[in-house]
Amino acid sequence: MEGKMVLNREMTLHFLSSHKTTILTEWKERLKHLPDSYIDYFEEDIEKILNSLMKQLKETDTNFDELLKDLGEKISANRVKQHLNMDIFFSITSIGRSIIIDQFLKYEVVKGEISAVIHQVNSYFDKVIYFALTSFTDLKTKQVAKQYQLINPNHKDRLTLLGQMTSSFVHEFRNPLTSIMGFVQLLQAEQPDIKYLDIISKELDQLNYRITQFLNLSKKETETSQNEVFPIASLVDEVMEFLYPSILEANAYISCKIDEDVEIVGSKEEFRQVLLNIILNALDVVAELQQPTIDISGSVSSGFLTLNISNNGPKIPDEVLPNIFEPFITTKKRGTGLGLFVCKEIILKHQGTLTCHSTDFLTTFTIHVKTKA
């Protein structure tokens, strides 16, 4: 322990200046787990973030919200340009925040002063994250809108035709399907000992959902969905129960680690659609593997939920990955190429981000949204 010190603004700035090299060295050391192609971009960002914090301490009269907004816009613009995941940015800022606070805690500081410093550091990092996320969401929304406008007339015609075909198909198919589902329910009530009725019922429910989903994917949403507060862990459980027959068919191992207390605000049914689309895609790509695995995990930091859905299926080709969320882009022989496009629109509508990172060993879709305040 060094001698006790009082951390006023000047001494805090002096402390950071004298420990800048130590902070940056440890910060960069803890980034070594990232892919080599990412490290250069993030090392440049962390120096900007630390320099900006020191500048804020030095120039007390400056409107730093505008400067931090500008910093967030530059960081997010670089992410969009390089097709980098925003979730990694949140991870490295959390690392930097903890390193800086740990450096202060190594010293015996007057009680009350350290609380003020920690509050200032947390406030600074929260604003950097907020402005970066807001800018990133705006840029991706504009990018999607621009790409949608550039869809050529043939694709627009395909989309219109697809909507007409599915609308007709659903109305013709749903009536007998509803009758079958009704008779299965009657059999379950009258003769509950008949084997496999539960499986038949779940398969029919899934078929009904797929028909509805196909119709929803082929037309642009016209109704405003009602927002509600709901625990994301419970929704994931519901989706897993619904997909149980598909999970059995793929013989997939599913792991799920999400805090049951984490709640988000939005359309529960739209989020259900996003989860179903991504997990169904994962089941499709791992079905032929000897040990098919899907891992779902969630973590909360600074008021944001990061939900990762990973599978050990084959790598998405490099030439496809940057366009994976565009309409009519698919790696499946019989896919429409609309599922992920709609997922992206739903998440952007909820002011979040949806990204994908794929390697030879793991493909991860990452959803980043605000939690309930």
Rank of each mutant, 00 (worst) to 15 (best):
M1G: 15
E2I: 12
M5W: 08
N8K: 06
R9H: 02
S17L: 11
T25G: 06
E29T: 11
R30M: 09
L34I: 03
Y38I: 04
I39F: 07
D40Y: 12
Y41A: 14
E43Q: 13
E44Y: 12
D45N: 04
D45P: 06
Q56F: 04
L57Y: 07
E59A: 10
T60F: 09
T60V: 15
T60Q: 11
D61I: 03
T62A: 04
E66C: 05
K69C: 10
K69W: 04
D70K: 08
K74F: 09
N78D: 12
N78C: 09
R79P: 05
F89G: 09
I95H: 04
R97T: 06
K106N: 11
E108R: 11
K111I: 10
S115W: 05
A116F: 14
N122P: 02
F125R: 02
I129D: 15
F131K: 11
A132T: 14
L133C: 15
T134W: 11
S135F: 06
T137G: 09
D138Q: 11
K140D: 06
K142F: 07
Q143V: 03
V144T: 10
Y148H: 13
I151H: 01
N152S: 08
H155G: 11
H155N: 12
G163V: 00
M165S: 14
H171M: 13
R174G: 11
S179V: 13
I180T: 05
F183M: 14
V184F: 00
L187H: 06
L187T: 10
L187Q: 10
Q188S: 08
E190N: 07
D193W: 12
I194V: 07
L197G: 00
S201H: 10
L204G: 08
D205K: 15
D205V: 09
Y209G: 03
F214P: 05
L215D: 15
L217I: 00
K220T: 14
T222C: 05
T222V: 08
E223C: 09
E228P: 07
V229F: 09
F230K: 01
F230I: 00
A233D: 10
E238H: 06
M240C: 06
I247L: 09
I247T: 02
L248G: 06
L248H: 06
E249I: 04
E249K: 11
Y253L: 14
Y253P: 08
I254G: 07
S255G: 07
K257S: 11
I258A: 04
D261P: 07
V262G: 00
V262W: 06
I264G: 07
S267T: 01
K268F: 03
E270H: 10
Q273A: 14
I278Q: 01
I278K: 07
I279D: 00
L280A: 12
L280M: 13
L280R: 08
N281Y: 01
L289T: 05
I296D: 01
I296C: 01
S301F: 09
L307K: 02
N308G: 09
P314H: 12
L321H: 02
N323I: 08
P327V: 02
T331G: 08
R334K: 13
R334Q: 15
G335Y: 02
G337E: 01
F341I: 04
C343T: 05
L348K: 07
L348R: 01
L348W: 06
K349Y: 05
Q351N: 15
G352P: 05
T353A: 12
T355C: 09
S358K: 01
T359V: 04
T359E: 01
T363C: 03
T366G: 01
T371H: 00
